[in-house]
Design a protein around this nucleic acid. Structure first.
Length: 785
RNA sequence: UGGCCCGUCGUCUAAUGGCAGGACACCGGUCUUUGGAACCGGCGGUGGUGGUUCGAAUCCACCCGGGCCAACCA
């Protein structure tokens, strides 16, 4: 009996599912080309890292490639320093774009030619209005825009003006090139967007060759098309921009398969800001020491702090890719860092807040060299270093307590503790100064306790230490989070995110005592200071004579926790006169109740039908509403009704099922008509097919059209309602899923759905589900195990 | 206020009409010369209301909540 064990698929994100589908269907001849398109006007941050991992990751997984393209279309904010720094960070993160390094500014000539094409087609015009006039004429979300005085300029004039704009005949702002699209579009972006503006500015790469610069919406899609990008991945705030992306590529004349844009959620991390604007302010206002300040969420900052690139890639994997606006707990980054470093970092002893211990029974001047392994028993790596032990030691101040709380496993007066890699000591006496501050502990060592043989000492705590005469002084920087609230952007109106800055994020310098072995190590070593956290030498301030360690992340500390309590067809250019109100996307398929209501107000016949549908035909008000939102829908419904008069049933099929198979098409684009739906619903009512089988037929009809009865035959979906036949199927299913049957009998009755589903699959959807269910219940009920 | 997008454990994310699963966090335990790691166990979720269906997180309607859009930024 082949029992089935959970063959449930493991999920991949929606972007990869789309790409996988395209590859499988050969959409781009199997090619996958993505791109990472930063604007060189700041530093890359961890939010970019997610996008980088997605773009390069998808390309690699599907055997494609990912381009690095600097989107340098704005001469006023971009410069070469940022270009260099970004490439540096990208390489450090572990990504390679090979020979595919591009600059948007290198495409200026081709973009210009595309604009000329649009002007010739009457799809773009030179507007000589002022910036304010254009803004004002654009309207608002509730009011349509109005044409400016230049919207109907003749093509020849536009061509001439545009050429002179390029030639530098006009000052900044004198003219602008706009798409001639739709001033009453509900999508504000489609209200004649500006494509080009005049800027007499020096471009860091193109010099003074241009004084005409393209804007994002115009430029980006063309850059993608020029490079043969297949999947243009960007963040959710560009969803509204997809319509212009498609408009431009279609109208310039890029035929399918051309690039398409897909949007995913950007990374937002709690307790930081991840917007270039705000990051720039932190730097400019001096709240941080620079782009690479270890507290910064920039790649440069994380890198300087000591975070390994693998950890950032792991974080990207952990947070996933979806479309919900989400905020990630920084604890997830901490976890990723520890996860990587646990298997990488050698352990070393360092005391951060030292307290002296004098061993009273250790011979003066005696030094013992201990051999200590770099990694704990559970990390499969080898290596040791010598650690000197003497009669004077530094231990951590909080490893001693005057008044030990319950469960305290460290040192207390009269108590014992194990020194890591060394001996057990007992505290005999506490030495205080005049203020009562503890300045020294006098302890005795138990020389018999060295090494692993501390049988009698179980239950004892272990603390870290450093020999006083051998200790190396080092500055340790214990950075704290930059902001004091989870969402620094959440400020009252008129407020500023900087009010949430953590004034104590910069550590007060402290001198730590570190074991001497670190002096001979590679200065880029990332250590774990046992019991304290992961550290490495600051690559800017701490590589010379001076030892400066940055704390990368703390260790988990359950004791402290406990102790402290606890996502088009080109529309014809709109007429010069503006409409009364913003025009809806589709007259054919009104989506909202507001649109449907408006349709009925405009068409009294529809209103009358609404009335009749609910009063005479017995439809629910909701169904009547949906079916009278447009003539198309209503006519379709009435056509179906002439074939099959069960109005509520036909209505239900239209409202609940037909919409699902449209896949973005209009009703008029379906390869079948109302009559066909009427025939299908009649077959269901007559019991010739199960409802479920009918849904499959409907889906087929939506793709290829065809006669329902014929399709039922072809697909073998004639209803199976034979009790014996279903019984046989049920037996096979239950046998195959014996483990689940056992769970069912243990009370997991939700599994009945699984069994019914299996019978439906086995019969290709032809079984009568009601009967199947009954047959199953019979068997499950009488054959309890 | 109009359009578009999104609502699943505290957080991030699967389930594509058929078993609500994973990760982080949290709690408990085992082990431990790191109060680390590892291992075992636990807690905890489909925004609401109706509808369609044998069966709804998933499809439909309405409501609620959140995000984006009225730059000559990207």
């Amino acid at each position: 009996m082949n029992d089935v064990t959970d063959p449930r698929p493991t999920g991949t994100d929606f972007i990869r599912q789309i790409v996988a589908t395209h590859v499988r269907e050969g959409r781009y001849g199997g090619r996958v080309v993505t791109r990472f398109p930063p604007e060189p006007n700041g530093y890359l941050h961890i939010g970019h890292a997610k996008s980088i991992c997605l773009n390069f990751g998808v390309a690699e997984e599907f055997g494609g490639r990912c381009h690095l393209r600097f989107d340098d279309t704005n001469p006023e904010t971009e410069n070469i320093e940022y270009v260099r720094a970004m490439q540096d960070d990208l390489r450090w993160l572990g990504f390679d774009w090979g020979e595919h390094l591009y600059f948007a500014s290198d495409y200026f000539e081709r973009m210009y030619e595309c604009a000329v094409t649009l002007i010739r087609k009457g799809l773009a015009y030179v507007d000589s209005s002022s910036e304010e006039e254009i803004r004002e004429a654009r309207g608002t979300v509730t009011e349509p825009g109005r044409p400016t005085a230049y919207r109907d300029r003749p093509v020849e004039e536009n061509l001439d003006l545009f050429a002179r704009m390029r030639a530098g005949e006009f000052p900044d702002g004198a003219h602008v090139l706009r798409g001639k699209i739709d001033l009453s579009a509900t999508n504000m972006i489609m209200r004649d967007p500006v494509f080009y503006r005049i800027r007499h500015a020096h471009h860091y790469r193109q010099g003074d060759d241009w004084c005409l610069y393209p804007l994002y919406d115009y430029a980006h899609c063309l850059e993608d098309a020029f490079e043969g990008i297949t999947h243009s991945l960007c963040t959710l705030e560009f969803e509204n921009n997809r319509e212009i992306y498609d408009w431009i590529l279609d109208n310039v004349g890029f035929a399918e398969p051309r690039p398409h844009q897909y949007e995913f959620n950007r990374l937002a991390l709690d307790y930081t800001v991840l917007s270039k604007r705000k990051l720039i302010r932190l730097v400019r206002d001096g709240h941080v020491a620079g782009w690479d300040d270890p507290r910064m969420p920039t790649i440069a900052g994380l890198r300087r702090r000591g975070v390994p690139p693998e950890a950032i890639r792991l974080l990207a994997e952990l947070v996933g890719v979806a479309k919900s606006n989400s905020r990630v707990d920084p604890g997830k980054l901490d976890f990723a860092i520890r996860e990587v470093l646990n298997h990488e970092a050698p352990r070393v002893l360092a005391v951060i807040d030292p307290l002296k211990v004098v061993l009273t029974n250790w011979e003066a001047g005696r030094v013992e060299e201990l051999t200590a392994p770099y990694w704990p028993h559970d990390v499969p790596r080898e290596g040791t270093r010598p650690v000197p032990f003497s009669g004077e030691l530094w231990i951590e101040r909080d490893d001693f307590s005057d008044d030990p709380p319950k469960g305290f496993r460290r040192l207390a007066e009269g108590g014992a503790v194990r020194l890591r890699h060394a001996y057990v000591i007992r505290c005999d006496q506490v030495v205080r100064d005049a203020d009562g501050t503890i300045i020294e502990l006098r302890c005795s060592v138990d020389e018999g306790t060295r090494g692993g043989g501390g049988g009698a000492r179980k239950g004892l705590g272990t603390i870290h230490w450093v020999s006083v005469p051998h200790a190396v002084d080092a500055e340790v920087r214990l950075y704290d989070r930059l902001f004091v609230v989870a969402d620094p952007d959440d400020v009252p109106e008129g407020g500023d995110f900087e009010v949430h800055l953590n004034r104590e994020s910069l550590p007060t310098p402290s001198v730590a005592k570190v074991e001497p072995s670190v002096l001979t190590d590679d200065p880029s070593t990332r250590y774990q200071f046992e019991r304290k956290g992961y550290f490495w030498r600051d690559p800017v301030d701490g590589l010379g004579e001076r030892l400066v360690f940055n704390r990368i992340v703390q260790l988990k500390d359950t004791w402290r926790r406990q102790a402290e309590g606890d996502r088009a067809a080109p529309p014809a250019p709109a007429p010069a006169g503006a409409a009364e109100s913003p025009r809806s996307e589709s007259e054919d398929r009104p989506r909202t109740s507001t649109e449907r209501k408006a349709a009925r107000v405009a068409d009294p016949d529809l209103a009358a039908r609404m009335q009749r549908y609910s009063d005479e035909l017995g439809l629910t008000p909701e169904d009547a509403d949906v079916l009278t939102g447009s003539r198309t829908w209503s006519d379709f419904f009435e056509a179906a009704l002439r074939v099959h008069s069960d109005a509520p049933a036909v209505a239900s099929w239209m409202v609940n099922d037909l919409r699902g198979v449209l896949e973005g098409r209009e009703l008029s684009e379906l390869p079948f008509q109302g009559k066909a739906l009427g025939r299908l619903t009649r077959m269901v009512s007559d019991g010739e097919v199960s409802r479920r089988a009918a849904k499959e037929v409907l889906e087929r009809m939506a793709h290829t059209g065809g006669d329902p009865a014929q399709l039922v035959d072809e697909l073998g979906l004639g209803r199976v309602a034979d009790r014996d036949e279903l019984g046989g199927v049920a037996d096979r299913v239950l046998a195959r899923w014996s483990a689940k049957v056992a769970e069912y009998h243990d009370g997991k009755t939700g599994l009945l759905g699984l069994f019914v589903g299996e019978i439906m699959k086995e019969t290709g959807g032809a079984a009568d589900p009601v009967l199947a269910r009954a047959v199953l219940l019979e068997r499950l009920g009488t054959r309890g195990r």
